[in-house]
Structure formats: structure tokens, C-alpha cells
Amino acid sequence: MISIRNVTKSFGTAKAVDDLSLEIGQGELCVLLGPSGCGKSTTLRLVNRLLEPDSGSVLVGGENTSFLPPHELRRRIGYVIQSIGLFPHLSVHDNIATVPRLLGWPRARIGERVAELLALVGLPDYFAKRWPRQLSGGEAQRVGVARALAADPPVLLMDEPFGALDPLTRVRLQVEFAALQKRLGTTVLFVTHDVGEALRLGGTMVLMRGGQIEQLGRPEDFAHQPASAFVSEFLGPEYGLELLGRYPVMERLRPLSALSSRGAVDSASAAQSGELSLPRIASTANLKEALSAMVAGGNLVALVCDDSGAVLGEISFEDAACLDKEGEQRCV
């Protein structure tokens, strides 16, 4: 859907992007990752021609972007940035309706679309009448995403969109957005410097350094075959653990063993009888959280419970800690 071919872009003497080539397929979510100054934001802006390449070409949907008028190209590409840039003089409704209006949609269709989008990004419909100043950071960014999706663009560019939000809101929006992207099948190019964010979003990871691609692949590839010392250093010594956050415990669930059945009594009676109670985790948790619960509870087995607290099964330390190269369970 997006092809970047041998693109170079310099600012003065500094090369921000250096002979970079990248293919992003239809419906793919590609995360550009790297330290500040590595050229990831520049690459993003080359796609919607907020910047023009010095050499090389960018194709969107098979069309060379340099042959299209910039404003027509941009109306087909959604764009979300960290500072959001909501128009303070327009209501939420009018903000979301910006691109449909530029495209000359009829009024009724715009109204329907705005209602649809508010529901899509999880905001109640009365938010349409609010003004940007009245929104919290998380709400504003939801509106920003809705505005970018308004004309149903096949491509969405996002530049650290959740960077200014508080940690809880950020994680919630990341998870919601990943689900939304899968549902809509929009091609997304996402820039971030936060490894955790890249992992929560999933998709292909592209690690950049000095305007070039250092490594490209699935998140697991980065753990098992780091391309250079820089990759390992950037991802950090806890990357292996971070990676476990991508896998839900339900994939590794086993029936209760005889041993842990004894520990599966409720904790109050366990304390009375002097028996050990096993750590409990929710069925929505991931492997990293399971390991954390085991460490905190001082046990190598954790019980997985549903919302009502009923025990569904157990997970062992070996099950939770092991990944093979395909991300599948191997240690039996």
C-alpha cells in the first residue's frame, strides 16, 4: 500500500533519511521505532508530502505521490500527531467533519459519519457538541483519531499520537487502537520511541538509526536475532520480558493439577488451615503479568480465574516464560 523507494532527505548537511526503502502491505500495521533524531518522523512526513524527498520516490496505493497535488493526496491519508492539532474554534463535530467537507460530502452523510466515528473511538454522541478546550487529553486524542479516519482513508499516519497522555490512558488507547485497526483493515504507519507501545500495537517493527533501517521484522525476531549491538541496547535488557506481554495466558492454560487443587481453596480458609494459597490472575492477563503474579506470590504456579473469581485452570512458570522462535510454546 505504501512503498518508499530509495528515499533520501537532508536538512542542511545532516541526512535525516538516507537511501531508505520500505514496503508496507495493505492492512498492515507498521511501527517505526527508534531514538529521537533517527529519521522516523521525517519518513512519516515524506509519505503525505509535508516534506518532499531529495531523491527517491514514495508510492501510495501504487501511485507516485509526487505526481499528485499535495492537498488531494493528503485528503486520502489520515494523520494523527502527538499535539493532536484540533481546531480550537470548531466544535468536535466540525473538527471531525473537516475532511468530508473538503471533499464536498452532502450534509446528511457527514452527520451520519460523525456519529459513526464517535461511536468507533468510544465517545458518547453528545461529545459532538463539545469544544476542544473542554476535552481531556485522552478524549482529545480520540477525537483526533476520529478526525483522521473521517473520510475512511486507506492509509493512516500516526506520529507518537499517545505520547502526551498519562500512562493508564495511553495503554488503554493503544490496546483499543490495535483492535480498531484490525477491524477496519486500515494500513497504518506508526512512529514511536516507546518499545512497550510498539509491542502492544503488534504488527511489523522497523527499528531505525541514523536515517537507515537497522532491523525489520516481527517483535520476536528482534529478541532472537538482534541485527546489532545497537538493537539489543535500544530494546533494553528487559525486552524478553516485555515480549511476554504480547501473549495472553489463556493460550497456555492447563487444567488444574492435583497439587494445585489443594491450593485452589479460597485464601481465607487457606490461611486458617495453614495451607499455601496460590497467586490468582485474571483470564485477560498476559504472560508477563502471570510471571509478575508468581514472583509476588512466591510460587511457580498461578491460578487463572474468570471475572466471577471461578478458577479456570493453572499456568506454570515454565509455560509462561518460554517462547520459541515462532512465538509458540515449546517447553513441555
Partner: peptide, 18 residues
């Protein structure tokens, strides 16, 4: 006018006049 607002406007496909 905030730079981010101007950039958002350009990125949504407004012409300079718009």
C-alpha cells in the same frame, strides 16, 4: 495559531488559501 493546528490543517489536505 498553534503550529500543530496549522500542520494538522495541511495534513488533512487544506490548500494554503483554505
Amino acid at each position: 495559531v498553534d503550529a500543530s493546528v496549522r500542520e494538522a490543517a495541511a495534513a488533512m489536505g487544506m490548500t494554503a488559501t483554505q
